[in-house]
Design a protein around this nucleic acid. Structure first.
Lengths: 346, 346
DNA sequence: CGGCGTAACTTTACCGATTGAGTATCGCCT
DNA sequence: AGGCGATACTCAATCGGTAAAGTTACGCCG
């Protein structure tokens, strides 16, 4: 690699020494100038900055990290069983929200996919070992989540997304699933439903448990008939659950599904069984999507704004890293009423 | 976390010097031992390896990168308009495929999201500037794609996913969209359809253009009536296109949609307009998903195996980095026949 | 005018791993 | 026994940037 006499280095690799050489100072001075620290005169600083700009200098990430500076990177592992990955819109929207905040603040995202929680923890350990991330986001906390325990031991900043009361020493961005269930429940109650079926996602997820607990509370409270069936986010299981519920001599007049994929599966099943929506049964999806808006009938959905949740998770992480107090923002959710919910047939 | 007197260092940070101290050698010897290079005796090597293992040593990524070693990382920017992000299942499946190959080979993925091609190129430049990636994957090449030109200038290994003939000097993982269209077309032809409508995605995408070109060829070749309408992957536009096509006095008996979200939107529209599927119109989606399998009627779809495409893209990239010749694998696609396609009413 | 403070730099060590250039120790051959 | 070569290491420089500890030189004050 021969240097050209002009002083513009060979490849895209410009270092502060290259700048120093051209400015007639040492690399130390360049460092001071670039980082806005005292120790160089304003004239020299301006000159250095101009040269750095001309030479298209960009700081070398590896060098900074090696010196112990933050890698400016947040890690996120997506753990889902193979067959469910990619079918839920939640994740991509959430990711978009996270990214928007991070990139604005100069952070990047490390993303990995895994199929079980043990390998997720292994990935966390890897990242921590070579200082690749400043902190870790954890999605879908489980009841007695092993990842949380491992992270506590590893001692890296972590934000639990969708956790309940930040039980552990880890920050969490709470999603008030109990409150969300209230909104959903009230929507159906207001329409006059007295018999509600709730087809749930994976019950090892802490937030699903909270929804179920809230659902149970509200049924008892309001004295209406409510029943819960687990379908683990799998469409086929949602179909079976729907069939089971509707074959009861006095079945529900409204169904709540924990995801839009399951809601669509449920709607299809109802249609197969000859039930009209919303004539015979009302259907409500816990997640909104473009598909909900275009189905026939259009699907009433809980819009909990996954992108906003992503933004909050990222913001929470950055506050944690800055040692600022975590503000406790409320992720709001509301029911978007569409054609699939209506008063029950009398 | 207090350091134990045993010599296990305080935090997760174990360096080769720590190992060296405990083994009674210098860090140079440790480096030789760990990298399997000659210069240390077998006994010493074994001892060093054992100690490294005991101390849970992991190589420091930043230090290696600084010394000019590969960061073992591949970059991918997802550029989609806000409203479309997260609605297409293709991306997540593709990503899962990419990751499975990369992580198996010890590579990680750098993922960013962007909303336009210019910022995608800016991100590429950033990554290259600090040597953060070994290569870049480019999705959805456009006609005269500005990113490709920029990457050629930057001179980093790149793999174009879904490109046509690897026109430029960049490797591409080809998707033979013309062949895929053949499969789709033949399926409808075999059923006896003579009037086919094709509702397309964004026509600035090179692969969409190829599909359209193939569609046109086949209609001419077979002498059947075919018409193409652009809907840019937006459900609402797909609905309008469907309405437009079906309001023709002699409308199509079969519809092809470039994505499953559009296909679902189309199905809903048909239902609203009073057309039965497949009684009056057959519907075929270019992308398969869980939703296609559970809709009523279930949706016939082209399964082009996004995960396999992701695996091939990753494999192609790794071969490129290893300077191995790119093998030209065929991404195969097949039509999964379901209820939504049937012979036309006579 | 001597001394002190300080602005403006330079020198140097360092982060963790790699690597080419030394060096000590041994065995072996003549 | 002397010398050669190989083996098994150590030493030191390096990657790019940061930061603490020097080193000038100048201005100002008593």
């Amino acid at each position: 690699m021969a240097a050209r006499e002009a002083g513009i280095p060979r490849s895209g690799r410009v270092t502060i020494s290259d700048i120093a050489r051209r400015a007639g100072v040492t690399s130390g001075a360049v460092s001071l100038a670039i980082n806005g620290k005292p120790g160089v005169s304003d004239i020299t600083r301006a000159r250095i900055l101009r040269i750095a700009d001309e030479m298209r200098w960009r700081p070398n990430h590896a060098a900074k990290t090696l010196r112990g500076q933050s890698p400016h990177s947040i890690g996120l592992v997506l753990t889902r069983p193979e067959e469910v990955v990619g079918e839920e819109v939640f994740f991509t929207k959430f990711l978009a929200g996270v990214q928007s905040v991070l990139s604005q603040r100069g952070y990047s995202l490390q993303l990995q996919m895994a199929t079980d929680l043990a390998s997720e923890t292994a990935i966390h350990a890897d990242w921590i070992a070579d200082g690749r991330v400043d902190g870790i986001l954890v999605l879908d906390p489980r009841v007695d989540d092993p990842r949380v325990a491992a992270l506590l031991e590893l001692g890296l900043p972590a934000v639990i997304v969708g956790g309940d009361q930040d039980g552990a020493a880890l920050t969490s961005v709470r999603t008030d699933d109990g409150q969300f269930m209230r909104v959903v429940f009230d929507h159906l109650l207001a329409l006059g439903h007295q018999r509600i079926g709730y087809i749930t996602g994976d019950q090892s997820f802490a937030h699903i448990r909270r929804r179920i607990a809230a659902f149970t509370d509200y049924t008892l409270e309001s004295g209406i008939w409510g029943i819960t069936l687990a379908a683990d986010f799998v469409p086929q299981q949602a179909k079976e659950a729907t069939r089971k519920l509707m074959s009861s001599p006095k079945g529900p007049t409204a169904l709540i599904f924990d995801s839009e994929v399951m809601a669509i599966a449920g709607m299809a099943t109802l249609s197969e069984l000859g039930f009209a929506v919303p004539g015979d049964v009302s259907v409500l999806s816990w997640e909104d999507s473009a598909t909900c808006r275009v189905l026939h009938p259009t699907l009433t959905a809980l819009n909990r704004d996954a992108a906003a949740l992503g933004r909050q998770a990222a913001t929470g992480m950055l506050r944690l890293l800055d040692r600022e107090p975590a503000d406790e923002p409320a992720v709001v959710a509301s029911v978007v009423p569409r054609e699939s919910t209506a008063p029950p047939a009398s």
